[in-house]
Simulated assay, not measured.
Amino acid sequence: MDVLISGAGVAGTALAYWLRHHGFTPTVVERAPRMRASGGVVGLRGEALDVLDRMALLERIQQLNTRLGACGDGDLAVLRGELIGLLCEATRQEVEYVLGDSIASVEQDPAGVRVTFERGRPRRFALVAGADGLHSHTRSLAFGPRERFVRHLGIYTATFSLPGHLGLPGSDRLPGMPGKAADILGIRDDAKAYAALHFASGPLAYDRDDVAQHQRIVAGQFAGEGGPIPLLLAEMSRAQDFFFDANAQVEMCHWSSGRVVLLEDAGYCAAQISGLGASQALIGAYVLAGELAVAGGEHPAAFAAYEREMRGFVAEHQQIGREGADRFFMGMPAQAPDVIATGTRETARTHLVRLKDYAPSFAARWPP
């Protein structure tokens, strides 16, 4: 049973792992020409650590912990690129990765999905999973335009690495600026550091692929600010791993349409400021693949069970994201770019996903 996964981020590579584990044949298509290494630091906590343990990757992930003081007991903070690299390493021998291409169209019929690509030849798959992020093209093709589902939270964030901490305080928020914030995040004994620049704004129009334009937007927002800001802007212009995006959420009544299903940010983004995106991606991938296995590849039953398992969990994460956005510029302590969960970590655990022990040796019954 062939499954196409759009997006080779945390969610896509984790889903590929679990689908292959259960006997499916996943293919991952990624629009970038190489595996992404940007995005700064992500937090891992709770049931996500259990998922990594079941993948036999927890010990290696613990070795990658940046040891930021923002994490609580048992929680980890790792570089997004290193996490994706580890997940890719665990799958590349048995999973086909198609880099530098993307889905152009999907045509569903009773037997499967015909997919055309921007560069490659058309192919058929049993199912398509969209794990291509907040700006998901898969979601637009199968469900409708972005504007119907994306809720802007009024904050933009840029992250980029620094050559050490430049003599600036590590893992600390710089003095407050109205409607703006800057964090310096020292990691691994300050041998490396990341900057995170945040500013309040309504929705902005820009080319998502134009990094130079993104940097001009950030520079314009922070123009005239003193202290270390000019130094940070100079380093930003040289950074090779610059990342810029809105803090936004995706709200949908359903995460599947026929044979197309959405995962993590594509279907239920909680926003960067929730600090829960990477954890949610790992858990969602585990549950989706497991429910497909239990249902014997019968996607209507599997997708319905996937939503039942994840809905309450996602709702609480999104509530944390909204609360975090409301008070983001109110002097909260600095945390990592994707771990700025506003000090309400206990709330994030009130709705636990009880991870099922999905049959590890399942072989998909395909065709049904």
Rank of each mutant, 00 (worst) to 15 (best):
L276I: 06
G277K: 10
A278G: 09
S279Y: 13
S279R: 11
I283L: 14
I283D: 13
I283H: 12
G284F: 06
G284S: 12
A285M: 15
A285L: 04
Y286W: 14
Y286F: 15
Y286M: 15
V287Q: 11
A289R: 13
L292E: 03
A293H: 13
V294P: 15
V294N: 11
A295N: 03
G296K: 09
G296M: 12
G296N: 05
G297E: 10
E298T: 08
E298W: 08
H299T: 05
H299D: 11
H299W: 12
H299E: 04
P300F: 06
A301L: 14
A301V: 08
A301M: 05
A302Q: 01
A304E: 06
A305I: 02
Y306P: 09
Y306L: 10
Y306C: 07
E309P: 07
E309H: 15
M310A: 12
R311D: 03
V314G: 08
H317G: 15
Q319Y: 12
I320L: 04
I320W: 02
G321N: 02
G321V: 05
R322I: 00
G324Y: 00
G324T: 04
G324H: 02
A325L: 03
D326G: 02
R327D: 00
F328A: 01
F329E: 03
F329M: 01
F329Y: 03
M330F: 04
M330H: 06
M330S: 09
G331A: 07
G331I: 03
M332E: 14
M332A: 12
P333C: 04
P333N: 04
P333M: 03
Q335H: 10
Q335M: 14
Q335R: 10
A336T: 10
D338S: 11
V339P: 05
V339T: 05
V339G: 09
V339Y: 03
I340Y: 04
A341N: 11
A341C: 12
E346I: 05
T347D: 15
T350G: 06
